[in-house]
Design a protein around this nucleic acid. Structure first.
Lengths: 227, 227
DNA sequence: GTCCGTTTGTGAATGCGTTCACGTGCGAAC
DNA sequence: GTTCGCACGTGAACGCATTCACAAACGGAC
C-alpha cells in the first residue's frame, strides 16, 4: 500500500488537515478519530480515512490517530520539515499583503526576496525585506536558492516575469495575476484569481435569485401542495 | 439541450473564457474557434466546446464563435450584467489589497462597504470607502443591499463574522481566513487560502527533488538503457 | 446549385474522486 | 485470557469530469 501516488485532490486537503491538527495539538488533544478530524476540516470521515491511508497506516483501530505523530507525517509528506525561501514579484497592494502575511512563516515559508519593476517601489522595505529592481531577480534566486516564486504583477507583465523566473531556475510558481501563463513542463504552476472566485459566487447568487422568482411565480401551486 | 444544469467545473472556467474573450475583443478579433479560445484560456478545445454547449448553441460550424456575442452570453450566465455590491470584513493587509483591487470593478463588483473590529482602523478611507466598525455590518448590508461578503479577518474572528453576515442576510461568502467556516445551507461559501497553495507547491517541489535524487542514484541503470 | 474544407455539438468511452459498507484489528475492562 | 465495542483501512460501487471521435452543418468558391 505504500508508494501509491497521492491523488491531487488529497494533496489539496492535507494542508487543511494539518491546520486542524495543529489547532488540536495546541489545545490538549492527544488523539483524534477520522470523524473528529473530518468535522474540524469540513469534510466527511470516509474521505479523511482514505486520504490518510495514502500516507501510510498511521491510525490505530478502535482509537484513532495520534495528533502529534500525524502532524509530523503530514509535514514530512508536504515537505514542510524544511524551510522554503520564496520570492515575490510585483509589490503592489497584493504583493504588500503577501509579503507581510504571517501565515507563510508559520508554515515553513520565508519571504526571502522582493522585486518590482517600478523604481518608486524599489528600495522600500516590506516585512523586513528590501524591494529590489526586477533585474536583480536571477541574482536573488541564486543567492537565496529560491525554488518558489509568487507573481503579483499586473497581468501584462506576468508572462515576462514568469519567463525570468523559470530562466533563473525557479521550479514552482504561484500566479495571482489574472493571466494565463505558459511555463516549461518541469515547472509547477498554480493560480489564484480573486475575481474569478467572486464571479463564481455571483453565478450561484443569480441562480438562487432566479429560483426564488420561479418559486414566487409558483406560489399558488406550492400552496396547493400544502407544504 | 437548454436547461441542463451547468457543472461546477464549467462554472469555474467560464470566468477564464470571459477574460480571454474580452482581451480578444479589445484587439480586433470578431470571431474565434474553440481551438483559439482553448489556447488563450489554457485548456483543450474539446473542453471549451463542451463547456460552451451548456450555455446554448452559440457557435457556427465551420466558423467558430462570435466574440462579442459570446462575451454577452457568458456575462449573462454568470450574472455579471448587474452590479454586485460587496462588503469586506477585516481591513488588514489583505483587506486593504482587496479593497483597492481594480479587477473587481472591471468585472461588475463594487466594494460598497468595509468593516473592521479594530478602532484604530475604523475611520480610515480605503479606495474611497470609509472603514466602519463591525457593529455597523448589518446596517450596511441592508443599506447597500449587499448579497456578497468577503472575510479577511484573522482566523479566530472568521466564524463570528460569518455568523453576523448570514444573520444580516448575506447569501454568498468568500473566505480568505485560514479557518473552516460553518454557514447555513442556503449560503454559498468559497474559500481561498494563500498558504495552502504554497504548501501544495512545496509538495510537488519536494517530490521533484526526491525524483532527481532517485534518478541520480539510478544513473548507471539509465545509461545502460541508452536513452 | 453543388462541392469542399472547416469547425461545431455531442454521444460514448475513459479516468478520477467520492462514498459506501464491512472485514479487520486494537485497546480496555473484568 | 477472553470478550466486547470501537474506529481504521479498503475493495467495490457510484457519479462527475474529461477526452475522444465523428456526424452534422455552415460558408465560400466556382
Amino acid at each position: 500500500m505504500r508508494e501509491r501516488p497521492i491523488p491531487e485532490a488529497t494533496v489539496g486537503r492535507l494542508p487543511v488537515y494539518l491546520r486542524a491538527l495543529v489547532e488540536m495539538a495546541e489545545s490538549t488533544t492527544a488523539t483524534v478519530s477520522s470523524e473528529g478530524l473530518a468535522e474540524a476540516a469540513g469534510v466527511n470521515s470516509a474521505k479523511v480515512r482514505k486520504d490518510l491511508s495514502y500516507l501510510g497506516t498511521y491510525g490505530t483501530r478502535g482509537v484513532g490517530y495520534d495528533v502529534a505523530y500525524l502532524i509530523h507525517q503530514i509535514r514530512r509528506e508536504l515537505g514542510l520539515t524544511q524551510h522554503w525561501p520564496v520570492l515575490i514579484a510585483g509589490i503592489g497592494n497584493l504583493g504588500h499583503a503577501l509579503a507581510g502575511y504571517r501565515g507563510f512563516g508559520e508554515r515553513g515559508f520565508r519571504v526571502a526576496a522582493l522585486v518590482d519593476a517600478d523604481p518608486k517601489v524599489v528600495g522600500e522595505v516590506v516585512g523586513g525585506v528590501e524591494v529590489r529592481p526586477m533585474d536583480d531577480l536571477a541574482g536573488l534566486v541564486h543567492e537565496h536558492e529560491i525554488a518558489i516564486g509568487v507573481i503579483c504583477t499586473p497581468a501584462t507583465a506576468a508572462q515576462e516575469v514568469a519567463d525570468r523566473m523559470t530562466e533563473a531556475g525557479v521550479r514552482s510558481i504561484l500566479n495571482f495575476a489574472p493571466a494565463v501563463l505558459t511555463v516549461p513542463a518541469t515547472v509547477s504552476l498554480r493560480k489564484v484569481d480573486l475575481s474569478i472566485e467572486l464571479q463564481i459566487l455571483a453565478f450561484y447568487e443569480q441562480r438562487k435569485a432566479a429560483l426564488q422568482a420561479v418559486r414566487g411565480g409558483q406560489a399558488v401551486a406550492d400552496l396547493a401542495e400544502a407544504r
